[in-house]
Design a protein around this nucleic acid. Structure first.
Length: 456
DNA sequence: AGTGCCGGGAT
DNA sequence: ATCCCGGCACT
């Protein structure tokens, strides 16, 4: 699993209680603020702690987060008094294991990964805390003293649910500046969910990223490395346990719900349906009445997103935007087929190896390669191509925990791949004038560039 | 081998 | 921005 699949969660429970949940990947963060009922917060955290094998031994509680680039980093929030430092938890994406610490009620940070191994790029974990220490990415996971080997399935599933949920793209969450200040929010039931995940499949092109990781000091002060907040508080039930508001959802993004009950995996498209399924099929089996409590089923399903197909169809006659052979997967794109030129395409579009690369080439090419007036690439056309780029992801099922490469990465792949113009059948200056009349060639031909006089 | 032209260096 | 060329892909 690639480092991009890693998502780290920082759960901060502050007096009130309020909960802050951060997700980190190797890229930047997206603070999101949501609200959650205090009971839910406590339930969630309790389940997380239990699931991860809570340990109360204080010696296991470092004052600092683990390694700067370690996925297992942890730190108790600096905003909380020592006495209130509570617990950390780490769990894999499958929720099999984790570590957690003291039971507290003030400040809690939970780090767990959704899967994969740590990577040196995951310095975002380090950003979230003030102090850090280096630690190997392979550390022994402390187990709880009691029943380490047999974690209660409910708790396990709860962690899985949270894990999958947090791994899911946060389309329904409005990004907000994370104001994790030393003064914890006192309004009960407030959750700040900072999502640093740049899970690629739903970020088409984020543009230039901030390569400089935020300073740990800033993190220690509870400031998010993300841009200023446009955020809004949301009901955490809506985020964690209920169907997200449709208005927040991207176009054509279908939502389904997968049952996380072991050996089930049933997928239903309605929230009510999945809840009923869990409640009736799993929870209420064997007369476990207490499990039939309301909202219990919330922990046993995860939301999965799926794009409509096709999400966006670029016009076939769009200049420079021919068929898109690219794949949403990180695998290298197939070699450009020397397909016959389309009558609707300009010379550039036909000769370019790929729509994306052609676009960029046009924008960066020398001026002598500028197409004739009839083939002028207007900014609008270029924009249309750019905006059509998400098409490459149209067939991608954006299931949680699945990350695709970003458009930028795909573009880099294209650049790395050999791409040349298809050999032109048209006359060129060399053919027309001959090598002996080189002075009659267009400058492009003279400079061994693409002929601008006899365009294809 | 001839051709087209990409990529990059030099100015 | 312009000029130039090495080198590669293709015919």
């Amino acid at each position: 699993m690639s480092r991009a699949d890693l998502v780290y969660y920082t759960v901060l429970v502050e007096a009130g209680p309020s909960l802050r949940l951060h997700t980190h990947t190797h890229t930047h963060t997206h603070p999101v603020s949501v609200s959650l009922g205090s009971r839910r917060v406590l339930e969630l955290l309790q389940l997380l702690c239990l699931c991860s094998g809570a340990s109360d031994s204080p010696d296991m509680m470092p004052n600092t987060r683990l390694g700067k680039r370690s996925p297992f980093g942890l730190l108790v929030g600096s905003s909380c008094p020592e006495s209130n430092k509570t617990s950390i938890a780490k769990a894999t994406g499958t929720g099999q294991q984790g570590i957690s610490r003291i039971r507290g009620h003030c400040d809690l940070k939970v780090y767990f990964q959704c899967g994969g191994a740590g990577d040196s790029q995951n310095d975002t974990v380090a950003k979230s805390t003030s102090c850090s220490r280096s630690i190997s990415s392979c550390i022994d996971v402390p187990r709880s003293r009691t029943a380490q080997q047999e974690v209660d399935m409910d708790e396990l599933m709860a962690a899985m649910v949270l894990s999958s949920l947090s791994c899911s793209p946060p389309p329904a969450l409005q990004v907000s500046a994370h104001k994790q200040t030393a003064a914890p929010s006192m309004d009960s039931g407030t959750i700040e969910l900072s999502d640093s995940s740049s899970s690629g499949y739903w970020s088409v092109d984020r543009g230039p990223r901030n390569p400089a990781p935020p300073s740990p000091t800033a993190e220690a002060n509870g400031r998010s490395p993300t841009p200023p907040d446009e955020g809004l508080d949301m009901d955490l039930d809506q985020v964690l346990f209920e169907e997200p508001a449709p208005r927040k959802r991207r176009n054509s993004l279908k939502v389904a719900y997968r049952c996380l009950w072991p050996s089930c995996g049933k997928v239903l498209t309605s929230l009510v349906g999945i809840k009923r399924h869990i409640r009736t099929v799993h929870l209420c089996q064997g007369g476990e009445h207490e499990r039939c409590s309301r909202s219990e089923e919330d922990f046993y399903y995860s939301e999965i997103n799926q794009w409509d197909e096709p999400r966006h169809q670029s016009p076939p006659s769009a200049p420079l935007c021919g068929p898109v052979p690219t794949s949403p997967t990180p695998s290298p794109p197939p070699p450009f087929p020397p397909s016959p030129p389309s009558p609707n395409c300009s010379a550039l579009s036909r000769s370019a190896p790929s729509p994306c690369s052609s676009l960029w080439q046009v924008q960066s090419e020398h001026s002598y390669q500028a197409p004739p007036p009839g083939h002028t690439v207007s900014p609008a056309a270029a924009t249309s191509c750019v905006t059509a780029l998400p098409t490459i992801c149209s067939r991608q099922e954006t299931v949680s925990r699945v990350r695709s490469v970003s458009v930028g990465e795909q573009w880099l792949q294209h650049q790395s791949a050999p791409c040349r113009r298809i050999r032109s059948e048209a006359k060129k200056c060399r053919k027309v004038y001959g090598i002996e009349h080189r002075e009659l060639w267009c400058t492009a031909c003279r400079w061994k560039k693409a002929c601008q006089r006899f365009l294809d």
